[in-house]
Amino acid sequence: MFVEINGNPLNVEVLGEGEHTIIAHHGAPGLGSLAEPRSSFGRLADAYRVVVFDARGSGASGEAGPYTHEQWVADVEALREWAGAEQIVIAGGSYGGFIAMEYAARHPSRVSAMVLRDTSADNANQELATRNAAASARVSIDRAKLDRIMTGTVRDDADLRECWLEILPLYDHDYDPAAVRARAEATPYHYRTHNYAFAHNQPNYDIKHLLPGITAPALVTVGRHDWITPVSCSEAIAALIPGAELRVFEHSGHSPQVEEAELWEATVRAFLDKALGAR
């Protein structure tokens, strides 16, 4: 369904009818969609009400700007109000984790728990990711394409697709060229959103100072072999959020919710049972 949120239509799906509401934010602005959180958090719809959506400028949602963190956080808050939830479990993976953390820090009274996956609290991961890509023995990366996608200077949707296809082999623990091609074909491309996020938001991104103010229980999950938001980024987050739990998945890259799906799901369920039960 389409829901008007802050003057822009968002493509929203609601799964399950549980007492507690989870709002899960996808990653990769301009490339991501609700498909990823639907496949991972949707598995919890037997016990929770799960709200997934295409963020402003991504997937099938409207493209009205701005594509700032402030706007994306405001959209989550308006979505919470639309859902009629006094408090939510806020969840986010990769870039969606940026927004989840900012939401939890700026709306602490509205967050009952937070689940993060393969994310970072500042832009230090950019340099780490660039080094990891250059050192990869799996594929030889075209440095010009890597630079365009990492700095938000892709030329159009077709160029974004080519740059995305270039780095996709780095994401998974086990490389499957057919799966990479299928993922590239299934991706909705919005190069203006991507460029704004990486050329304007990312260079100044640093919310480490906000993390000690997060009051909700937090679970930080990450794949041991994540190339773009390495384990050190999650370790830094867990060290700054009071009482945060860190779980490293030894046989995963950037997507433990896919590569170690059963273990990741069991970990999230156990965390939420404890966190929401205590509250």
Results as ranks from 00 to 15, higher is better:
250 E>A: 12
231 V>F: 02
21 T>E: 07
184 A>T: 07
171 Y>D: 12
137 A>K: 12
8 N>S: 14
161 R>P: 02
226 D>A: 13
103 Y>K: 03
167 I>F: 02
160 L>T: 11
212 P>S: 08
187 T>Q: 03
209 H>I: 01
166 E>I: 00
56 R>I: 10
101 M>R: 03
23 I>K: 05
212 P>N: 09
202 Q>C: 02
224 R>F: 04
246 L>M: 07
109 S>V: 03
106 R>S: 13
215 T>M: 07
109 S>F: 00
133 A>L: 06
35 A>K: 08
101 M>K: 01
6 N>P: 10
167 I>P: 01
186 A>T: 03
192 R>S: 06
111 V>A: 13
252 S>F: 04
95 Y>R: 10
82 W>C: 09
94 S>L: 01
57 G>A: 05
17 E>K: 13
207 I>Q: 05
211 L>M: 08
109 S>K: 11
42 G>Q: 10
78 A>P: 04
127 E>S: 07
137 A>I: 02
179 A>Y: 03
163 C>G: 06
208 K>T: 15
113 A>L: 02
55 A>Q: 15
137 A>Q: 13
259 E>C: 00
249 F>S: 07
76 V>T: 06
263 L>H: 06
106 R>H: 07
189 Y>S: 13
187 T>A: 13
49 R>W: 10
243 G>D: 12
233 C>M: 15
12 V>L: 09
166 E>N: 03
